[in-house]
């Protein structure tokens, strides 16, 4: 499964970066969104993927039954998903504010606002 996911994640990265290199700020947002999803999948995949063995311990037992999926990358990705949402919201609102001030959706026209 991992090679297939690797291909898919590579493609996701390529689309994300292509969108982030566009001058239109709306496309930048879409690129950011694609990138955060791709990064989460990257962490999840490199740790190895396991079918049907969630890291849960059955009631009344002290150890999980058999091999379970690695819980650590899952915990990392879980917070990453929520934070990515927070950061995305921040970026989106920032871009909206920038658009209101500059009145242009072309990033090249915003280049003087930060110098």
């Amino acid at each position: 499964m991992e090679p297939l996911m690797a291909l898919a994640i590579g493609l996701l990265y390529a689309t994300a970066i292509f969108m982030m290199l566009r001058r239109s700020i709306v496309k930048l947002v879409i690129g950011l969104l694609l990138l955060s999803n791709a990064a989460n999948l990257l962490i999840f995949t490199t740790a190895g993927m396991t079918r049907g063995a969630p890291p849960l311990i059955p009631e009344g037992m002290l150890q999980p039954v058999g091999e379970v999926a690695d819980p650590l990358p899952q915990a990392v990705v879980l917070t990453a998903i929520v934070i990515a949402f927070g950061v995305l919201a921040f970026a989106v609102v920032l871009i909206r504010r920038a658009y209101e001030v500059v009145k242009a959706d072309d990033l090249d026209k915003m280049k003087d606002t930060d110098t």
Binding site: P54, L56, E59, L78, T79, V82
Partner: peptide
């Protein structure tokens, strides 16, 4: 703490 769920999911 025991089953799928937790603060992040519940908050969402």
């Amino acid at each position: 703490h025991d089953e799928p769920g937790g603060g992040f999911i519940a908050g969402l």
